[in-house]
C-alpha cells in the first residue's frame, strides 16, 4: 500500500522536503512507516530527522502526529490503511 507523509515545521527543514511517499505492506503500523520513511532519505537527512522524531528509541512525546487529520496520541501505534495521509509536526512557538 502507499502512504503520504507531510513533514511540518523543523521536520520539514530536516527532511529537506514537505511531502514523502512510502510504499509498505498492508497493515503497516505508524512507527514502522516512519522507520521506512527514514530509510528512504539520504543519511544526513535521516539523521537530522531522527534527532527530532525520537527520544531514545521511542517517538518524542512532543510530536504532533495525525493520520487522516485526526491526532494519534503518542504511545499508540495504529495500523494504517492504504492511502492514509500522515502529518508530523514538532512544536513551534512565537517570537
Amino acid at each position: 500500500m502507499k502512504l503520504k507523509l507531510e513533514w511540518m515545521s523543523q521536520l520539514r527543514v530536516a527532511a529537506g522536503q514537505a511531502r514523502q511517499s512510502v510504499e509498505c505492506e498492508e497493515g503497516t503500523r505508524l512507527e514502522q512507516a516512519l522507520r521506512l520513511a527514514l530509510e528512504q532519505l539520504p543519511p544526513d537527512r535521516a539523521s537530522a530527522l531522527s534527532a527530532l522524531l525520537l527520544d531514545g528509541e521511542a517517538l518524542s512525546p512532543s510530536l504532533l502526529i495525525a493520520v487522516d487529520e485526526i491526532q494519534v496520541p503518542i504511545g499508540t501505534d495504529p495500523s494504517l490503511s492504504d492511502g492514509a495521509t500522515l502529518v508530523l509536526m514538532a512544536p513551534i512557538a512565537g517570537g
Partner: peptide, 29 residues
C-alpha cells in the same frame, strides 16, 4: 499561536472542553 519559517499554527484551549498545551507538548522540546 506559533510560527516557523513560512508555516504557522493556531488553536484555542478552553479548560474542561479541549486539550491543553501540555497535552500536545508535555515537556520543553
Amino acid at each position: 499561536a506559533a510560527m516557523y519559517e513560512l508555516q504557522a499554527q493556531l488553536t484555542t484551549f478552553i479548560p474542561g472542553q479541549t486539550p491543553c498545551l501540555a497535552c500536545l507538548t508535555p515537556i520543553k522540546p
